[in-house]
């Protein structure tokens, strides 16, 4: 029985910490707080966009969500089922339903195998299909992602970046997954090809009833594909809400700065758009600041921000932010 309102994926105070160094290194053993206290709910059929700058933990979070990384703390639920510490063999049937597309298709495709073979691989591993059925399914997948049947015999290097990403997508959807995590799927592509892949992903979502978690640093692409977005800063979600609303009226000072920094094509004289330029750098996740993690760079930080860490709370229906002084309009 599938309950439409039951979240497909849920995290509760999820954390991922890495240990670096040894007791012999100069600074001793240290802990990187890559993802910290993330509670996120993903509902069936939606696209949740994760945005944030490099090092904010969005890719680490993505890898935790498909259990490519072991989770340090908190819980991960798939259709209400706790999969936080399931063993690899227990996870295997789930892998079919939880897939991932990576940024660099040339790094994720074996250069020595034909792409037809690469797309057939998940079918061989998970399915109980005959060779004939597999061939038919591969042909179907090629058509679905907009590749030609005679492409099957080629090797990855014979394709352009956009076509390679199509192969990566075909592999991910081969087993009819429910949820696909896309980690920067268009970032390595030329601008003129990005739109093709964005459209392909939208078509597939509609046809195959997919749920997406979409990660990209290009904010306009994220806005285009996402129904909801979560803005991350230094390992935690600082704002979450419907994509268009968050972009139109960001409430967290970090989201405001981030969105205002995106260069857009304007036909008015330069300098008319208000831009918030942040000072300083993103602090090291080795020793995150006290209180609100954004306070050292925040233009409106007060004493309270330095000592007390704001929780991600729902200030408006559907809009959550982790800030003591959010801009609510």
């Amino acid at each position: 029985m599938i309950d439409a309102d039951r979240p497909i994926l849920e995290t509760r105070s999820l954390a991922k910490r890495f240990s670096i160094g040894t007791r012999f290194s100069a600074e001793g053993r240290r802990t990187v707080h890559a993802v910290d206290n993330v509670s996120l709910t993903v509902r069936r059929g939606e696209t949740v966009g994760l945005v944030g700058e490099s090092g904010c933990g969005k890719s680490t979070l993505a890898r935790c969500l498909v259990r490519l990384y072991d989770i340090t703390d908190g819980k991960l639920l798939f259709e209400g089922d706790d999969i936080t510490s399931k063993s690899l063999s227990e996870l295997r049937p789930l892998r079919r339903r939880l897939q991932m597309v990576f940024q660099d298709p040339s790094a994720s495709l074996n250069p020595r195998r034909r792409v037809g073979d690469l797309v057939a691989e998940p079918l061989r591993i998970h399915g109980k299909l005959s060779a004939k059925e597999i061939a038919a399914r591969v042909a179907e997948l090629f058509e679905l992602v907009g590749l030609l049947p005679d492409h099957m015999m080629r090797y990855p290097h014979e394709f352009s970046g956009g076509q390679r990403q199509r192969v990566g997508i075909a592999r991910a959807i081969a087993l009819n997954p429910d949820l696909v995590v896309l980690d920067e799927p268009v970032s390595a592509l030329d601008v003129s090809v990005q739109a093709q892949i964005v459209n392909l992903l939208a078509d597939l979502q509609e046809k195959l009833k997919l749920t997406y978690i979409f990660i990209a640093h290009d904010l306009s692409v994220v806005r285009q594909v996402s129904t909801r977005i979560a803005v991350m800063y230094l390992g935690s979600i600082v704002e979450e809400g419907p994509a268009e609303e968050v972009f139109a009226t960001p409430a967290h000072p970090y989201s405001q700065a981030l969105i205002s920094a995106v260069p857009v094509v304007e036909t008015t004289p330069t300098g008319t758009r208000k831009r918030i330029i942040l000072t300083g750098d993103v602090p090291s996740p080795l020793k995150p600041p006290s209180g609100c993690r954004f306070h050292p760079r925040c233009p409106i930080a007060a004493d309270r921000c330095r000592s007390e860490r704001p929780e991600l709370t729902e200030h408006r229906p559907g809009r959550k932010m982790a800030c003591h002084f959010p801009t609510l309009t």
Binding site: S192, V193, A195, N199, R223, Q224, F247, V262
Partner: peptide, 14 residues
């Protein structure tokens, strides 16, 4: 893709 206003259902791709 636009950063403000109505989202197109599909992007006009090349």
């Amino acid at each position: 893709p636009p950063l403000t206003g109505q989202k197109p259902r599909r992007l006009p791709a090349i």
